[in-house]
């Protein structure tokens, strides 16, 4: 029964997201199309982080790195006149997977606090690399030369198809994470999170499983980055700033760690809250900061815990 409740919740939420464009058009508020597209892009990023954080126990504090790599892959190709979406997204996925492989291979050898700090430091390194790329705008960033075009299929310059493209990718990622988590691979990953010693003693070495999960999450977040640069139409090293990593991590916690739908709720919760606070005051962060502290201290189960069937998968 709780399982069915959860499926119903997910379907209902996705139906709501799918209904945003016609409703926004009806209300004459195209702004909401933009806002919810942004929500879904960050939902994909948070979903990928939740895969390694919630199910794998890897507290990566540098997830914005892959957002940046995906964005730079699209931005750099567009700058050199390649607007083909297939090539751009393939490069975004490949490059972020490769970077995740290198960072993961070193970081996963450590654990606990070291892991947090190393993933943070590697992302900071990429951030400075982005700043020093004078050719591609350096510190200031640069305008995206043109949005991605999938020849014959789709042109991301049209807001409505772009919205449903992001929606389709979000649904695909949700399905992928669901299948991975419930596969044999996902069981080993979850087992090594809950008890590493026992996992070893029944014959599984956690390292290759964790590394594979880390690479999958990196590649998924790279897709979010490729979408994000199409959303903003502007490429800047700030995509990789460490506060961005913190925001993505907060989305996971706010929505409910180790739940499938949590990251989507968390992304929506944080971005809508930011939008609301920004409408009130220029100094909205002075309200957001304490809210963040309170959520961490008192609302451990997150938003997903409030919904039917929203319990953790474990």
């Amino acid at each position: 029964m709780p399982r069915r409740g959860r499926t119903l919740t997910i379907v209902a939420l996705l139906a709501l997201l799918a209904a945003v464009p016609p409703l926004a058009a009806l209300a004459g508020q195209p702004f909401y199309l933009d806002l919810f597209r942004r929500v879904m892009i960050f939902a994909i990023a948070a979903l990928s982080l939740n895969f390694i954080l919630g199910y794998g126990g890897m507290v990566s504090f540098g997830h914005a790195a892959y957002l940046g790599i995906g964005a730079y892959a699209v931005g750099i190709l567009a700058y050199h006149g390649v607007h083909d979406g297939f090539a751009q997204f393939a490069l975004a996925i490949g490059a972020s997977a490769l970077v995740a492989l290198v960072i993961g291979a070193i970081s996963i050898r450590t654990s606990g606090l070291y892991f947090i700090m190393i993933t943070l430091a590697f992302t900071q390194m990429l951030f400075y690399l982005g700043i020093s790329l004078e050719e591609y705008g350096g510190d200031d960033g640069m305008r995206l030369a043109g949005r991605s075009v999938f020849a014959g299929l789709l042109d991301l310059r049209d807001p409505m198809p772009f919205y449903y493209f992001v929606f389709a990718i979000l649904v695909a990622c949700l399905y992928l994470v669901h299948r991975l988590v419930n596969s044999r691979f996902g069981m080993v990953l979850r087992a090594s999170k809950s008890n590493e010693g026992r996992t070893r003693s029944i014959g599984f070495s956690p390292y290759p499983y964790r590394l594979a999960a880390f690479v999958i999450a990196g590649a998924m977040c790279g897709v979010a980055g490729a979408l994000f640069v199409n959303q903003t139409a502007y490429l800047t090293p700030a995509f990789m700033s460490w506060t961005r990593s913190g925001e993505i991590m907060f989305m996971v916690i706010l929505g409910g760690m180790s739940t499938l739908i949590g990251p989507v709720l968390g992304a929506a919760g944080l971005l809508l809250l930011e939008d609301l606070l920004q409408g009130w005051t220029e100094h909205w962060q002075i309200i957001l900061g304490p809210i963040l502290v309170l959520v961490v201290l008192f609302a451990k189960r997150g938003l997903a815990g409030l919904l039917p069937g929203g319990g953790r998968d474990e």
Binding site: F61, G112, M249, F250, Q285, L288, G289, I291, V296
Partner: peptide, 15 residues
């Protein structure tokens, strides 16, 4: 550590 990182991140925004 995850909670500590996030809560102190909130403090940074505040300060």
């Amino acid at each position: 550590h995850l909670d500590q990182v996030l809560a102190t991140f909130g403090l940074i925004l505040f300060f």
